[in-house]
Amino acid sequence: MIELSAYNIILLLLAAVTLLGAVRVIATRSVIHAAFWLFPVFAGIAGFYLLLGAQFLAAIQVLIYIGAILVLIIFAVTLTRNAMDSDDAPANRFGVPVFLAAIMLLAAVIGAAGHTRWPAAFATIDHIALAPGLEVTGVPALGVTLLQHYLLPFEIASVLLLAGMIGAIVLARRERPSADDDAPADAATAADAPQREKVGV
């Protein structure tokens, strides 16, 4: 059973906040509320990283997930606002079967985790991150690992970021027909119009 030390109480609180946020994200009808409920999830995960001793990852989590991705998602929600009526059902017709399948998958995962014989020496964790001298573990070693053993994935990741940035700019740019192909663009728009009606918009 879990011993009620301060470390474990904080971990349990973090777990409660994270899971509450996750449940609200999938169950909230309003999309903007779901986006805001992502905040406790990301912050709770950052807290887990901090308590498990991965301080650098906690900082990265706050910077990128909360600072960039969450803001991006909220911008996307506001830019596509009023796209769906608020009384539309938030879930499609697979809601109930997927819920049942999710419960079964979760039971399988928890059962597998509970029945696995973990190496006994590592099966528990001591009060690491709440120790008085809160040392930053392994950031220099992480730099060495990243740039010596994982140099190629690192470079590929940077190229991926560049490609993602250019792709996002190209995709999200509003199409402006240039002066010389005004007429074809208009014709194309007119030709598209009946199809849009067919789609039901």
């Binding site: 998602i73 596509t80 809601g95």
Partner: peptide
């Protein structure tokens, strides 16, 4: 799988 809104 179940959310109808693409952002969700």
């Amino acid at each position: 799988i179940t959310r109808r809104n693409a952002v969700a």
